[in-house]
Amino acid sequence: MILPSLANSLGVFFMRQNFLSLPASLLEAARIDGAGEFRIFFRIAVPLVLPAMAALAIILFLASWNDYLWPLLVLSDREMQTAPVALGSLIGLTRVSWGGIMVGAVMTTLPFLVLFLFLQRYFIAGITAGGVKD
């Protein structure tokens, strides 16, 4: 269930665009100084795209957290259901457990809210990074 969300095309495209926006002169200067490709990647490129990685992490986490159809199709065991599928099971043919749905909605919102609060500055920096033209 996790593997399809790891190879997300939005993530690949978003990170590709961010790596292409890095100044080539900075990478060339590191090569001239004798740094290898792995060192350039981990010491120069990754710290520069860290805000974009944090923004992407928040976006993809939210997308997979709110996914309903894929877990509904794949998971057959009731104990392995994700939160949105479990919330959907509270709606019956003749009765709806509104109290349970409201509590469940708050509980499923809290992890995303905590993640956003911790990564807020990276998220804002990553989203606004592409808005400035050099």
Rank of each mutant, 00 (worst) to 15 (best):
M102L: 13
F42L: 08
A125V: 02
E28V: 07
A83V: 12
A125G: 03
G88P: 10
F112E: 11
T82V: 11
R121Y: 00
E28C: 04
V49E: 03
Q17E: 11
S97G: 04
F19I: 15
P71D: 05
T128C: 04
R31P: 04
I91R: 13
I40A: 09
L117P: 03
W65E: 08
A7T: 08
T94G: 08
S9P: 01
I40D: 00
R121L: 00
S64Q: 08
L113V: 15
T128V: 10
I91F: 09
E79N: 09
G34Q: 13
A83C: 01
F38I: 14
V114H: 05
L10H: 04
F19R: 09
L93G: 14
G36M: 04
G126D: 00
F42Y: 12
D33N: 10
R16P: 02
K133D: 13
L117Q: 11
I58F: 00
F61C: 04
A45Q: 06
S21Q: 15
E37C: 01
D134H: 12
G130M: 09
S97Y: 09
N18G: 12
S89T: 15
G100W: 03
R95S: 11
T109I: 03
A105Y: 05
L87G: 07
D33A: 09
L56W: 01
L72N: 12
G126P: 00
T109S: 13
L50F: 05
I40V: 13
V85M: 06
L119C: 01
G131M: 14
G34P: 14
V103W: 02
L113Q: 10
L22H: 10
N8K: 04
L20E: 15
V132K: 11
F14Y: 12
L110I: 15
A45R: 05
F123Y: 10
P4E: 07
L110S: 07
R43N: 03
G130T: 11
A129D: 14
T128F: 01
Q120K: 10
T94Y: 12
A30E: 10
A54E: 01
T109A: 14
L3A: 14
V132I: 15
Y68C: 07
E28R: 09
L3K: 10
F112H: 08
G131A: 15
